[in-house]
Design a protein around this nucleic acid. Sequence first.
DNA 1: AATGTACGCAACCGCAACGAC
DNA 2: CGTCGTTGCGGTTGCGTACAT
Length: 182
Amino acid sequence: MRVPCCEEMGMKKGPWTPEEDQILISYIQSYGHGNWRALPKQAGLLRCGKSCRLRWTNYLRPDIKRGNFTREEEETIIKLHQIIGNRWSTIASRLPGRTDNEIKNFWHTHLKKRLKQSHHMVIQSLTYAPISTQFSEFISSSESDSPVEKVTGPANEEEHTINANVNDDMAFWHNLFMKAGE
DNA sequence: AATGTACGCAACCGCAACGAC
DNA sequence: CGTCGTTGCGGTTGCGTACAT
């Protein structure tokens, strides 16, 4: 019977202390992380391997980029999410220095709000244009220079957001139709 | 200044995938 | 081929902080 790491006795939970961070960093720098399950014991940490791996990959890794997401990163996330959905690790692999957890959090706290805003916009736009026309516009804009990419500068922030939102919903409807056609 | 509320982020949990045996 | 152990992923939670009243 396998014991979940969360049930292992004597394992510490909750926020990591600077001391624990330092132990983990210096251990991995010296020996690497061949076996996460064995690592905490060997390093002298009262944490489960899962917790160590998470702390390292999401916070302590030297190549992690800190700070706000750039406009390009934001656009990449939106576009990839349109295509592949909640595949955060896949999206993260396209954004050097960003972790899946960070992207997931960013999506839920910032980008998700835009879906709500865009919901009424797409309904509004569907009222005035046939769906086939909108798909061809969406696909051609995705293949060539997207209108989203042409927008730069803070003055166009709202327009940029709206374009991204509409694209998002277009993708949703596009996927829906593709599935229906299968 | 005190209290309530909303938000952002780090961390946890459960499950699926994968490889070793 | 089935079982077991480990890792990785995505969803969710909960705490700390900023902001509003």
